[in-house]
Write a protein that binds this DNA or RNA. Structure first.
Length: 570
RNA sequence: GAUUCCGUAGCUCAGCCGGUAGAGCAACGGCCUUUUAAGCCGUGGGUCCUGGGUUCGAAUCCCAGCGGGAUCACCA
């Protein structure tokens, strides 16, 4: 890859440092005894603090004025200004360390360690007066420079493609990105300790599964060589966790990466995270209480309040949340009471509210579609929707009193589902029939219908206690809790198409054609990266272009002759 | 997968009624010993995403491709 002018200069600086006996990548540790944040917070309150400090970070800004300079470094906690004074850095006659190393060979992006003391400048900024500094890592690429004044950001590093492909850069340059990810971890930690406090066991179950189950989705398929068999990446871990309940655990949970081979958009990434929880001897009513309590606690731990701003909405997670049955919700938002309707009447309502109806849709699917079309996006404040049609919920227990429904709920926040839970179906004979009904749906053309898992049925036949189960979409919840409009903002490395890798000929390949070494950079500069590309060039044009570049770059090498050029590409 | 918008210097962007490119920041050379997206003077830096086409001439117009965003479909 051809280097840009600035990259070449940085590599030259690197060499110069080495010539001066400075290792740009030293091996020894650099002891840090304070962070930028600690200084910013505590020094203004007590000016006797931090008079002998050692701190390290990345240079983010430099203002050089003759014999004194200000530099900002950034560590993992934030930024702080450094004050460099020539005669302090270089007390003797030799001013190289300041004039050459600091002023010329150091760049924005380099990582340095400094020792000194803290003071406040005339402008009122907490600053470290540097007594000595050490280069800890030389940066060879130019950092995008984001500047800020009065809360206005200049030259923001905002190109989504660059930000997602080079998340490390995004994290260096955009502090709010870093915050969102820290908050995501706070969220997960809160949930984990909430569940641990209740005595539930965190477990791990297979990601590679011979049968995929527990949800309705298309899987990723892979192959195990030794066993010579197809394996699937899990789309959920439900069926394995329930096997553990059969095995005698009272409560198990798993934070799991699941994989679904479906479309990608701002709410979907092919791999995503869920937490699933199963608790024996409980039901879905009990689980609703748990969800409310846990999510309220998440909001409090993350924001110190139950109220969270998400886009234009202020969402309040304070308990208790609203609860509707699905039929009530549909009636409230559409005026249609569908609770007693048959398939034909449902098709009629669905069509009226704008659902595209097709052959493969059963009664349950129709109700689900009507709900999705008319209700879901209108539920902004946390709301539980309960009692779903049995056809849509092959793993949920039949409702204790309502025919055709199951004991299931979803929590909807900001118009999106964040969790799904039920009283788990533990009747093995009913479960077998439900799987068989799924197979029927599959035959009708539903690509996401579930497959029959014989071992799971065998486990149920041994007997599973009544159990409440829950799945929470961690990424969705993180989006809401961090006010992120896209799932890509809460995943460090969202899925992307791979970058195009350019094939390039080596210097040797070009030299084999008889091209003098000093001309190779010129050829690359002209955009010829492979021998083939070069051979396809018109020799006269190539000859002209190369000599033109020689002139433009004022190269001190003899001009090419047309015969030479022709010989290369014959 | 469909529709639509976008792809110019390291970054953010202008130029797009066709005549081989500009600004700010960053870089380089000066001046400046507490500055504040520092300032001032000067300099350099570009396969204008790729490939075709139209044209005397394309960053600019047309077509195709690649990459990305948004919306829709599937889904969490």
């Amino acid at each position: 890859m051809a280097l840009s002018e600035q990259e070449i200069i940085r590599r030259q600086s690197l060499e110069e440092l080495r010539k001066l006996g400075i290792d740009p990548y030293p091996a020894d540790k650099f002891e840090v005894n304070v962070t930028a944040k600690e200084i910013q917070e505590n020094y203004p309150k007590d000016n006797s603090l931090y008079q002998d400090i050692s701190i390290a970070g990345r240079i983010m800004q430099r203002r050089i004025m003759g014999a004194a300079s200000f530099t900002e470094i950034q560590d993992s906690t934030g930024r702080i200004q450094l004050y460099f004074k020539r005669d302090e850095i270089c007390p003797e006659d030799d001013k190289t360390l300041y004039n050459v190393v600091f002023k010329r060979l150091l760049d924005i992006g380099d990582i340095i360690g400094v020792k000194g003391y803290v003071f406040i400048t005339k402008m009122g900024e907490v600053t470290i007066h540097v007594k000595e500094f050490k280069i800890l890592s030389k940066s060879l690429r130019v950092l995008p420079i984001v500047k800020e004044k009065d809360d206005k950001v200049f030259d923001a590093f905002s190109d989504p493609e660059l930000r997602y492909r080079q998340r490390y850069l995004d994290l260096i340059v955009n502090p709010e990105v870093r915050d969102a990810f820290v908050k995501r971890t706070v969220m997960i930690n809160t949930m984990r300790s909430f569940l641990n406090e209740r005595g539930y066991l965190e477990v791990e179950t297979p990601i590679l599964q011979p049968l995929y189950g527990g949800a309705a989705a298309r899987p990723f398929k892979t192959h195990h060589n030794t066993l010579d068999m197809t394996l699937y990446l899990r789309i959920a871990n439900e069926l394995y966790l329930k096997r553990l309940i059969v095995g005698g655990f009272d409560g198990v949970y798993e934070f799991s990466k699941d994989f679904r081979n479906e479309g990608m958009d701002r709410f979907h990434n092919p791999e995503f995270t869920q937490v699933e929880l199963y608790v024996a001897y409980k039901d879905y009513e009990w689980m609703m209480d748990l969800v409310e309590e846990m999510i309220e606690k998440v909001a409090l731990d993350m924001h110190g309040t139950t109220k969270v701003r998400v886009g234009d909405n202020l969402i309040d997670f304070k308990r208790p949340w609203k609860r509707y049955t699905m039929y009530e919700a549909i009636e409230e938002f559409t005026g249609h009471d569908i609770s007693q309707m048959n398939e034909e009447q449902l098709v009629d309502v669905a069509t009226k509210v704008g659902v595209k109806v097709d052959e493969s849709m059963g009664k349950g699917k129709l109700i689900d579609e009507i709900f999705g079309e008319t209700v879901e996006s209108k539920l902004i404040q946390p709301t539980f929707i309960t009692d779903y049609p049995v056809e849509m919920s092959p793993l949920a227990k039949k409702h204790r009193t309502k025919e055709g429904l199951v004991e299931r709920f979803e929590a909807i926040v900001n118009g999106k589902e964040i969790c799904n839970a039920f009283s788990e179906l533990n009747d093995p004979i009913d479960q077998r029939q439900r799987f068989e009904a799924q197979l029927e749906l599959g035959k009708r053309g539903d690509e996401e219908s579930m497959v029959l898992d014989e071992d799971f049925l065998r486990a149920l036949e041994y007997g599973m206690p009544p159990t409440a189960g829950l799945g929470i979409g961690i990424d969705r919840l993180a989006m809401i809790m961090t006010n992120s409009p896209s799932i890509q903002d809460v995943l460090f490395f969202p899925q992307m198409r791979p970058e195009k890798k350019q094939v390039e000929a080596s210097d040797e390949d070009f030299m084999k054609l008889g091209i003098p070494k000093e001309w190779i950079p010129v050829i690359r500069q002209k955009g010829f990266n492979t021998v083939d590309e070069l051979k396809q060039a018109n020799p006269n044009k190539l000859f002209n272009d190369l000599n033109g570049m020689r002139k433009k770059l004022k190269l001190d090498i003899p001009a090419l002759k047309i015969e030479e050029v022709k010989k290369w590409i014959e």
